Amino acid sequence: MTSGLTPELTLSAYCQGCFPMADPSTGEISFYEPDPRALIPLDERFHIPHGLRRTLRKKPFEIRMDTAFAEVVHACARTDQPEEQWIDGQIEEVYGKLHEMGFAHSVECWDGEGLQGGLYGISLGKAFFGESMFHRKTDASKIALVALVQYLRAHQFLFLDTQWTTPHLLKFGTYEVPAREYREMLKRALEG
Results as ranks from 00 to 15, higher is better:
Gly89Lys: 11
Gly112Phe: 01
Lys187Arg: 12
Lys187Pro: 00
Trp110Ser: 06
Leu42Trp: 05
Gly173Asp: 07
Glu84Tyr: 10
Glu108His: 01
Gln150Pro: 01
Ala104Val: 09
His50Asn: 07
Glu83Phe: 03
Leu160Gly: 00
Asp88Ser: 05
Glu113Arg: 15
Pro36Asn: 13
Cys15Met: 13
Leu158Ala: 05
Arg153Ala: 11
Pro82Asn: 04
Gln116Ala: 15
Lys171Leu: 08
Thr166Ala: 05
Phe157Lys: 12
Arg37Ile: 09
Glu100Ser: 12
Cys76Gly: 02
Arg136Cys: 06
Leu152Cys: 08
Val72Arg: 11
Thr6Tyr: 14
Gln81Phe: 04
Lys142Arg: 10
Pro60Gly: 11
Glu108Gly: 01
Arg53Leu: 07
Met133Asp: 01
Glu108Trp: 01
Leu56Lys: 04
Ile29Trp: 10
Leu186Cys: 00
Gly51Gln: 08
Gly112Ser: 13
Ser106Val: 06
Ala104Glu: 09
Asp111Ala: 04
Glu113Ser: 15
Gly125Cys: 02
Arg64Cys: 14
Arg188Ser: 15
Ser123Met: 06
Ile87Asn: 00
Gln81Asn: 14
Trp110Val: 03
Gly96Asn: 03
Leu148Glu: 12
Gly192Thr: 11
Leu98Gly: 02
Lys171Ala: 12
Pro20Glu: 02
Arg180Asp: 15
Ser12Gly: 13
Phe128Pro: 04
Pro34Ala: 11
